[in-house]
Design a protein around this nucleic acid. Structure first.
Lengths: 213, 213
DNA sequence: CGCTTAATGTACGAACTAGTGAGTTAACGC
DNA sequence: GCGTTAACTCACTAGTTCGTACATTAAGCG
């Protein structure tokens, strides 16, 4: 056989092995935290061996950083799809907030990785050339929306886009990141599907009432 | 000497030894997380030995649960001091929010412990008889304020106290818990003293605008 | 003042954990 | 075909980490 074609199962595949490790590692780190995750455990769930983790990534820490990079880039790629330029400012804000709301709910592992990284004071993000200062497409969209609302005299003129982004993130992140202690203390599951629409609408109301006051 | 008096330095003191261990352990667990914390490290920073940790607490996990219990009870004791019955509903809401805002900022270790516990899916809180279902005095106060505001026709009548509490917590917790990744990605320190008043006021505005819309 | 026991210190071990040394085999260009 | 090298396997180790067996000493009581 001359060259491996797409329908041929290659026994050795650099990309597939790497992707396999990264995928398993993402789940393991998100599940157990950086310190709690075990390299041997990751290796076992992989279709390859522990030696390959060191071959491709160098060590536990570099593997964890690679996991963070992949997770952030994937989320940012999703955010870049945001298209709200055709909407009225109020509707655009709601749409943007709901996009974040939905994204967070759809990617609990990412939220867990962020929480874990904050426990470690973002030292790994700081060490990553890819992530340090990675721009946020959603923030650019938000800036434009606020500008349009302000120009139309419908939004107050003393709001910083990053502050609004912070409010949206607070709400959406808290709902996922703190759901366990919240449920244990107050007996309410913030992820209960029956309350989903209520929270989604509430976030929009909160933002619009503030911006138009 | 017959009995140990208060001015006598007792060489053996059950309470002091226990409190010492608990204090050191709180800092260690908040700093490194449950898995990251080392029993030997805690012992070393104590004025006693590792053997005593096992003598008084039984093991790493029970020590961690004891740390959580003490931290939660201390915070709840502070919250119980809330006195807003003499204030107008709007001012009472702001006061309550600012109290939470200040408390969170003053107790970063507590916020870290909560984040860590959420990573572990609150399994230790669930195992603690003291903490499971521990009532929140601040929530009772909030319920009364909302009721008064609603009766006076100044607050909307479709708000759940726990939802308002969630919004307050989201904002205050996010500011502390996610400050590192937020700073790494956006270059803004949410704990910058120069922005403190801005955030404090913003939270109040956010709540009042929503409740009075 | 000696007896009892709660409180404390010392030394150690079994299991785990990140990482590696050295050899092996499949893929691919020539 | 064949040599080179990238991809891969296996067995192993040095250091760590929770936990404990055992010895010891201070405190209080009759």
């Amino acid at each position: 056989m001359a060259a491996p074609s797409s329908d041929t199962e290659r026994q050795r595949d650099k990309d597939r092995t790497r992707a396999d490790i990264l995928d398993v590692a993402t789940r393991e780190f998100a599940d157990k935290g950086y310190t709690g995750a075990r390299v041997d455990e990751i290796a076992e769930r992989t279709s390859t061996t522990k030696r390959m983790i060191y071959y491709y990534f160098g060590g536990k820490e570099q593997l964890y950083i690679a996991v963070l990079e992949q997770a952030y880039l994937a989320i940012r790629a999703l955010e870049a799809e945001l298209d709200v330029e055709h909407l009225e400012p109020e509707d655009a804000i709601r749409r943007l907030a709901e996009l974040t709301f939905d994204h967070h709910e759809a990617h609990p592992d990412f939220i867990r990785l962020v929480s874990i990284e904050n426990i470690h004071r973002a030292e790994h993000i700081a060490r990553s050339e890819v992530l340090a200062g990675l721009a946020n497409p959603a923030l650019d969209g938000l800036t434009q929306i606020l500008e349009r609302g302000r120009a139309a005299g419908r939004f107050r003129d003393d709001v910083d886009p990053l502050d609004v982004h912070m409010v949206i993130s607070s709400f959406c992140v808290f709902r996922l990141a703190n759901r366990h202690t919240f449920a244990a203390i107050f007996g309410r599951d913030m992820l209960d599907p029956g309350r989903r629409e209520h929270y989604r609408r509430m976030l929009g109301d909160l933002l619009i009432d503030y911006l138009t006051s």
